[in-house]
Design a binder for these strands. Structure first.
Lengths: 225, 225
DNA sequence: CAAACGTTGGAAACGCCGTTCTCACGCGAG
DNA sequence: CTCGCGTGAGAACGGCGTTTCCAACGTTTG
């Protein structure tokens, strides 16, 4: 193999490059397929048991692959959990994007966005379309991930944070709200909404439970609307 | 022992009761001492390593007690963690109570309370008096406890929630703020403040970090102030 | 065709840790 | 003295994430 690698640099024939890339493509697609099998197995386990406390062995058995293969594609269990989280966030991003696209005014978009975000985090509030997974266990585990891998979680949430900033910017420019620092305001809004469902866990009495609308009203006034 | 226990009911001589209770008292105080040794050992381990990921064995070694003794007093590791959390919250409660007692007007009390609560959750913001423990790891683990034992966490937090409700009530009655449901408002305020520090974990850039004051301003307007 | 090589599956094995079990020691009561 | 009981010390168990080893199989090469 040495002789092949050290041919004169820079003038690789095109066919070779294409052949390599083709081989890499099939390898890549096969790898992606196998990874997806792991993800699907893990999702189905989470849906069934309602918790992220599955074992690697269960994922192996259900995906009909080998332990060896698992560690070939994932550095460890945390990587799998992070992949599940990122996948879930990706679904959320698509859903949220469609929400704001159907809004007419900036404020309406911001309101619809925050309410949908609240409902997304707490799927128990409204029955969702059955096509998606049970997000509850993953969202619960997300706080754990936030402690251990905050950078990864931040990166995964970046698209949502970005949308939030743009919405706040637009609403602020339109005069619907009045904030000095839109980035800070967006962060505040996002936190309040996203952890609102988490705090509901501590509210056994229904009277203290926070609905998406109540949370929005609070935030709206907090933003000077 | 049978004959002693089954003497005629209801007319136990007072001395016997006193003796029994005395024996129970010494037993209780000894038990409390031993429990405290476990707690102290765990706290010191947390302080040193900056994480709650200590092993039972470490606690045993440091407290110079036996594994058997540990399971005699704690049902499992979770019970120990919950005890540590409850102890930490107790300290916070005392501190917060002293804060609101030195407030003149209702609004000032509410503001001082929320800001202190924010600082309490995130000890890194302000250097605290060194008498207390490093709360960071415990607060991080608290979110995990919230997932697994929400009822216990809610019970532990009850005094703080109670104070929060009273402060909101007072401020509302004084006209400093304007909310319809003070319980709901208190829950909202508490959540926003407490998870604000947690959300800061996701804010790598300093520009998005939320200070106690910024959070308070947001909440104050949200409460119709 | 045969030999060498990389990839994959299967499964044993390791290490850590929470939890339980066993046993022996010490001590007060009968 | 001995019986029972609480206690300490530590072995042992079980679950699980992770690593390692080996055999099977397909592919490439001489």
């Amino acid at each position: 193999m040495r002789e092949v690698d050290t041919t004169e640099d820079g003038n690789e024939p095109a066919w070779r490059e294409r052949a390599v890339s083709r081989s890499l493509n099939t390898a890549r697609s096969r790898a992606e397929q196998r990874v997806q099998r792991f993800l699907d197995a893990a999702f189905s386990l989470i849906d069934e048991h309602g918790t992220t406390e599955f074992t690697i062995q269960e994922v192996i058995d259900r995906s009909k692959q080998s332990l060896r293969g698992f560690y070939q594609y994932f550095e460890g269990k945390d990587e799998l959990l992070l992949a599940l989280f990122e996948e879930t966030v990706r679904e959320a991003t698509d859903d949220l994007r469609s929400v704001i696209e159907s809004a007419r005014e900036p404020l309406e978009g911001l309101r619809a966005f925050t309410i949908r975000l609240h409902e997304w985090c707490d799927p128990s509030e409204k029955p969702q379309k059955r096509s998606t997974h049970n997000r509850r266990p993953i969202m619960e585990f997300a706080v754990q991930l936030t402690v251990d891998h905050s950078d990864r979680v931040e990166a995964a949430m970046a698209p949502i944070s970005q949308m939030m900033v743009e919405l706040v910017d637009a609403a602020n420019a339109a005069g619907a709200i009045n904030v000095a620092d839109t980035h800070r305001a967006a962060a505040l809004l996002q936190q309040t909404v996203m952890y609102s469902w988490f705090g509901n866990r501590l509210a056994m009495s229904a009277r203290k439970r926070l609905t998406a609308e109540a949370t929005w009203d609070f935030c709206f006034r907090g933003l000077g609307g």
